[in-house]
Each structure stands twice: as structure tokens, then as C-alpha cells.
Amino acid sequence: MGSGEAAARVRCVAAVPCWVSLMARDLEDAKKFYGPLLGWEFEPSPDRFGPYVHAVTGGEAVAGLGVVGGGAIPLAWTSYFGTESADAAADAVRERGATLAVGPLAFDAGRIAIAADPAGAAFGIWEGRPGRARKLDVPGAPVWIELRTPDPFAAALFYGEVFRWDGRDPERFDVRWEHDRVVLRAEGHSVAALAKEQAGGPAGMPPHWEVSFAVPDTDRALALAVELGGGAVGPAFDSPYGRVARLRDRDGARFAVISPKG
């Protein structure tokens, strides 16, 4: 997030993941990897915390990339949940025995915090310009955000209490059980899910929010990621939502690509 033309297009959607961001070791190197892989162009977005750019595809700002300090910090994509009050959400995190790592901090696009749920999965909190959920049907957009955790029901209770899932307008927001997952829907679209996976499961990861970006051809994207210096975390596979490949970038940050079903 940040100022500039792209920031004006980004909107905070309460209760659901509405932004994804990566803090890379080398911003230019990350751009050389993700740009060709996902068809991104980049717009500078000055930020008080250091260099930061918006990834843009189809005229939409779909993700942010910044620079992390220190070489020993594991790199990962962070999913930010929208909220009406970053302070209230941060208080709810602490009250439920989870970890508030950073913030809330004020910056040009609102207020943010970084937290970890009781199982250790990191996520962001964002209080910003309000908007409504919409489906981005453009290649390179984050189209599926999924929590991989040992107990999705306990996780759903935690996130439901932090982001007040109960009591919201059922015409605009609902939580359901679908394809062995707890699925969040907003404005008629499935926007995220919580799925069971043992720590150190098939992806070799502890509990985490997995970001999946849309691509026209998953197998081709997997091969391109390897050519660009990244790697595959297992073979591509078919899911209820499309064909998926779990990947890592040049610095080891993990993400996924998916060819969504119509």
C-alpha cells in the first residue's frame, strides 16, 4: 500500500482478505521474477517504511512489494484482512491469546498491524478506505487465499471473533462449509478458505495463509517459475477451484498459482 494512482484504486474490505504484500530482500530482483511470471507492471508507491511498489495488471493494483530489513527473516506473502478498526482487531487478537507482532501503525493508506493466530499463521490487519468485495478476473490477480492449518474450525472461531463475522449482513457476507473447507463469501464471491493441513504437511510449511495468483496455464507458469530462478513445491494438481501449483520465488517465499475453473 502507499500513495499514488494505484493506492487510490485499492480499497479495504471489512472482514475478508483484501490485499497481499511481500517484503523482499531485493526489490528489483523480486520485480524481475514476478513481473514476467504473473504479467505484472509496477508503479512506485512512496511509503514511510521504505521502498514499496504496487503490482499492476489489467489496470488493477493487485499486490504490493517492499523491502525487508535483515537477512535472517524468513520471507513470506502476507494476506491483509480489512477491518473498520485496527485497534479493535488488535485488541481482539491479544484477548484471544494470539500474537500481535507489529502495530497498529499509521501510514498513508490507513492503519496496519501484523499478527499471528494461535496456530502461528501470520496475517495482516488493515483499516483503510472502505470498499466492497469484487472478483478480479485478470491474470496475475490474487484469486484465492487459503489458510492451511491443523484445525480450521478453531481457526474460524478465532478469525470470526477478531473480524466480527457473525452479525454481518447475510446478503453480503457468509461463512459456509464447502469442499472440506470453511469458505468465506463476500458479495456473492468465494474470497478465502480455511483448510485442514498438518504442520509440515505436503507443502512442507507450518500453518500459513497461502496466496494463489491467477494464471492462464498452471503447468506453463510452473515451468516459467523454474526458468526464472524459483522452484516448484511439489507437482501441479487439480483442486475444486482449479489447477494449482505451489511455488517458491528466488528468495524462498512461497505462493501458488491457479488456473481458476470458469
Rank of each mutant, 00 (worst) to 15 (best):
Q198F: 03
A90M: 11
W126N: 02
G160K: 12
P152V: 09
R148C: 03
E5M: 09
A155L: 10
G188R: 07
G204D: 05
G39T: 05
E41P: 00
D249A: 14
E5L: 14
V182P: 02
F153R: 14
Y52A: 09
R243K: 13
R111E: 14
A90Q: 07
V175M: 12
D180V: 03
G229N: 08
V143Q: 04
R148N: 09
E178S: 11
L194K: 03
D219N: 05
A192E: 13
A203Q: 10
P36D: 05
R168T: 06
M23P: 00
L37F: 01
E187Q: 13
E127Q: 15
A14Y: 04
E187N: 15
G140S: 02
R220N: 05
F255Y: 09
V143M: 02
G230V: 03
L27I: 00
A30H: 00
K31F: 00
A90N: 05
G124V: 12
A232V: 01
A86E: 04
S212F: 07
G69R: 13
R111G: 12
A109V: 01
G242L: 09
G120R: 11
Y34V: 00
S239A: 15
A223Q: 12
D151A: 08
R176G: 11
A122H: 15
W177P: 08
D26L: 07
D217L: 03
R181A: 15
P170S: 12
H208Q: 13
A214K: 01
P260F: 02
A121Q: 08
A6Q: 10
G167V: 08
L37T: 01
R132Y: 03
P235K: 00
A72T: 11
V93C: 03
Y34R: 01
E84G: 13
F237C: 04
M205F: 04
P216T: 10
V215K: 08
A214E: 14
D108P: 05
G103N: 07
W40R: 00
F33S: 01
P235M: 00
L247E: 03
D137L: 12
L194A: 06
L38G: 00
G103V: 02
P139I: 01
D249F: 08
V53T: 12
G262L: 06
K31I: 00
A221N: 09
H189R: 09
A203G: 06
P74S: 08
S79Q: 06
E178K: 10
V56M: 13
V191T: 09
P46K: 08
E60Q: 09
F158E: 05
I114A: 11
I73P: 03
A186P: 12
A101M: 15
G82H: 04
P104N: 07
D251F: 15
I114S: 10
R134M: 11
A245Q: 12
E171R: 14
L224Y: 07
A221G: 13
I73G: 06
S45H: 02
R176Y: 13
W19C: 15
G234M: 01
F107I: 08
V10E: 13
L222R: 14
V182G: 12
M205A: 14
T218A: 14
G140D: 02
P17Y: 07
D29L: 03
D91Y: 01
